[in-house]
Design a protein around this nucleic acid. Structure first.
Lengths: 155, 155
DNA sequence: AAGTTAGTTCTTAAAATTATGAACTAATGA
DNA sequence: TCATTAGTTCATAATTTTAAGAACTAACTT
């Protein structure tokens, strides 16, 4: 597979970043490899070998990343192998998913406001502000993406 | 401590959400309790008792949340207890921290661009787009916050 | 000086996560 | 038909994370 030391280091760093974002270690390394690799598409065995992990670890990681749509694969006629690649365009969707997660939290916060019984209502203001800001984010972030796309297209 | 069933349920839900965002279980429940509780400030013992966890679990969780500035505490003259409370205003900082985390990732992505050797340069475009969008986010998110603050002040 | 209070620390245990290797399957090829 | 390829699955092992409980400390009280 022939990775430079720089590449190996980057794979680990990107791996750690993804671990910190909740992806399991092996899958996180696969993410690192897929983005750092000179080849856009890699096979199961290339991944296993490049990362020195077991076939089962590879199998788990790949299926996880396929399910979460971090990866996809293509095939070629007369070739039984799958060629895995990053679903690059996916960062847009990942972005929206993050926003939705925030919105889910916001639902809980509204319930808090209903359920808890603070003596002084002033105490609720901070929370109301936060809720309001999350609403605002939810509303404005898609616009932000749109604005960037426009600006980026021009150049 | 007298929590309603609704409150207990919400504490768990908020706890799970925080767990999914990388906070350890006990600390995540403390976050839930602090926001759901009728009292704005709670003592060490109240927390221990309300969540039915050990003193060491409480100690760990509180120190973690103090370090990460999710919580702070106040004291009163002639009272040795600490009264823990959420650092409410802190969501603004948490927001900026999230942005910084993205920026950190972006640094790695730029390195990828330098280090990897893709045959067709077209392949780099998607990555360049992503990098560019992250830059844009980094630049615009603070403005978004500012704009919200302004709009919110008026009402 | 002896006891209380408000926590902390340490050892250990339990639980959860992750990876391994071997055995398996299903499709293809010789 | 037998072998090979491209994986998957399963039982187990290793590692990590988390919590418990008991012993401890440091400050204050009586």
């Amino acid at each position: 597979m022939n990775l430079t030391d720089q590449q190996r280091t980057l794979i680990e760093q990107i791996g750690v970043w993804h671990e910190n974002n909740g992806i399991q270690p092996a899958a996180a390394r696969v993410m690192g490899l897929m983005i750092v690799s000179d080849k856009r598409e890699l096979t199961f065995d290339e991944i296993t070998e490049a990362l020195s992990i077991s076939k089962s670890a590879t199998s788990n990681a790949l299926n996880l990343l396929l399910r979460t749509e971090h990866l996809e694969y293509i095939t070629f006629p007369g070739d039984r192998k799958r060629y895995f690649k990053m679903k690059i365009s996916n960062w847009r969707e990942a972005f929206t998913r993050k926003i939705d997660d925030l919105t889910g939290f916001n639902v809980l916060l509204r319930q808090v406001l209903e359920v808890r019984n603070r003596n002084c209502d002033e105490s609720d203001e901070g929370l109301q502000d936060f809720i309001s800001f999350l609403d605002y984010l939810h509303q404005e972030l898609p616009n932000l993406l749109a604005k960037w796309e426009e600006q980026n297209k021009k150049s």
